Amino acid sequence: MSEAFNSNEAPEPVGLYPHSRKVGNLLFLSGVGPREKGTKKIPGVELSENGEIISYDIAEQCHSVFKNVRLILEASGSSWDKLIDVTVFLTNMKDDFPTYNKIYAEYFKDNQPCRTTVEISSLPTPIAIELKCIATI
Rank of each mutant, 00 (worst) to 15 (best):
M1Y: 10
M1G: 12
E3W: 07
N8L: 14
A10F: 01
P11S: 11
P11W: 14
V14F: 10
V14W: 14
G15K: 15
L16W: 01
Y17A: 13
V23S: 01
V23C: 00
G24A: 10
N25V: 00
N25P: 01
L29F: 08
L29P: 04
S30T: 13
S30K: 11
G31W: 00
V32M: 08
R35D: 00
E36T: 08
K40I: 00
I42K: 12
P43G: 08
P43R: 09
G44H: 07
V45K: 09
E46K: 13
L47G: 05
I53G: 09
I53Q: 10
I54H: 04
S55V: 01
S55D: 08
S55M: 05
Y56F: 10
I58D: 00
I58Q: 06
A59P: 02
H63N: 07
H63T: 07
K67P: 01
K67E: 04
V69Q: 05
R70A: 04
R70S: 05
R70D: 05
L73P: 01
E74D: 06
S76D: 03
S76C: 06
S76H: 07
S78Y: 10
S79K: 15
W80M: 09
D81L: 13
K82Y: 07
L83V: 12
I84Y: 02
V86I: 14
V86M: 04
V86Q: 03
T87H: 05
K94I: 10
K94V: 11
K94R: 11
D95Q: 13
K102E: 14
I103V: 08
Y107G: 05
F108P: 03
R115Q: 05
R115F: 11
T117N: 14
V118I: 15
V118T: 13
E119V: 12
I120P: 03
I120H: 00
S121T: 14
S122V: 04
S122F: 08
T125F: 15
P126G: 14
I127V: 14
I127N: 15
E130M: 14
E130P: 05
K132D: 06
K132M: 14
I134W: 08
I134D: 06
T136I: 09
